[in-house]
Design a protein around this nucleic acid. Sequence first.
DNA 1: CGTCGTTCTTGAACACGTTCAAGAAAGGTG
DNA 2: CACCTTTCTTGAACGTGTTCAAGAACGACG
Lengths: 233, 233
Amino acid sequence: MPDRSASPPDSPTGGLTPKAEQTRTQILRAALDLFRESGYDGTTMRAVAKAADVSLGNAYYYFASKEHLVQGFYDQIQVDHAAAAESALAAETGFSGRLLAVLDSWVDVAAPYHEFAGAFFKNAAEPRSPLSPFSGESAAAREASIALHRRAVEGSDVKVAAALRAQLPELLWLLQMGVVLFWVHDDSPEQRRTHDLVRQIVPLVDRLIRLTRLPGARGLAEDVVALVAKVRG
Amino acid sequence: MPDRSASPPDSPTGGLTPKAEQTRTQILRAALDLFRESGYDGTTMRAVAKAADVSLGNAYYYFASKEHLVQGFYDQIQVDHAAAAESALAAETGFSGRLLAVLDSWVDVAAPYHEFAGAFFKNAAEPRSPLSPFSGESAAAREASIALHRRAVEGSDVKVAAALRAQLPELLWLLQMGVVLFWVHDDSPEQRRTHDLVRQIVPLVDRLIRLTRLPGARGLAEDVVALVAKVRG
DNA sequence: CGTCGTTCTTGAACACGTTCAAGAAAGGTG
DNA sequence: CACCTTTCTTGAACGTGTTCAAGAACGACG
């Protein structure tokens, strides 16, 4: 009796895949090409299968759904962002500059996918979707992104209230999610408005963080941290 | 020659509808009932049409798509919220209490739709969707919601930096959007965690606002307002 | 080699959202 | 009343994402 719930390699480079891992990447590559070319809705699973030289059913053997193909896009952009941010970070020592480096490099890296991203962004917003940035399936990418912000913080000179320090990278990641939300809605050419937003908001964040060391604000900062900690669980 | 782009009453209670407006509400009512009962994905347009005693094609004559049926849900919940918040506001004079009244009453009013909301929330997140809270089609509901927050601010004793005062209702509306985002992802029974979030974040916001009058923070507040103003355009 | 269990592959079939050509009612206008 | 235009109504048909029963290919063990 064949396994009813035929679950193939589920993770990007899942543990269990002999050599037909190649077929998987073949499908994924075809999908990303078509997504880029015709957008998400404009790309049919039949077209993906044909471009990858497999049958329709076979595509579904490797990817549980069309949405799952998008996870490949996530992984790709995350890797690209990590590389771009890393080289931008090398040139900056101030906190402000380093945060700007991380945020701005994301906007640059994501630029080619802007139109396509708008079309499938809705899927990411669905709570139960594996594509949600808060989902368990996205944990790896999320952690990697938070780690990037941690590097931005730790490599800098920023003085921050002790209680806040540990949580800061996660809060900055949240800020980045906000930037992404804005970016997706940004119709301006070259996403100039998102660039402007980033450039203006970074010094504000910088000042806000330094403010947390003032007597009147420290307690507030601690409460914010406590709130985030409680709410995250 | 019949009008090719057969556009029927587009707005909720659009100007031009003789008496067959009744058919429209009939369909809408059937849809909302089914949505509540079986969720968004579990409800088919065929089922809606049958429940409303019209043909499938006729449902599409009145509503351009399944998503457009959801606008009815939006309108309903906004009206309910306005009423609930109004009565809650009557009992509160402090800013903190008034803000809590507005946010908490939303969570209460929306509770019956929590499961259903999660299923279609993705549509609202799509930039080009008319259901997006930032879209032109949602402008009316958005304005009404902002007006509610304006009432919360103006009826209270809060002292806020002048520059911030005008923008505050809009910022609070943004805060509410954040609460909605959290609510949609909230799996806890009765959405207890969202209630906790609201109850904890309100005093924080209260303190944060009062802080904007301190010398060290006032400039920052003004810059935030300037940023929001620029970014909104 | 033969046999069995697992992994992989296939295309037909299903249910759905949506479109469309065709026509029925309804509402003037003479 | 007859005629025409506009509004409304219909169900078949299309293309889509997804499922499924059936079997091919493969690998291990005797």
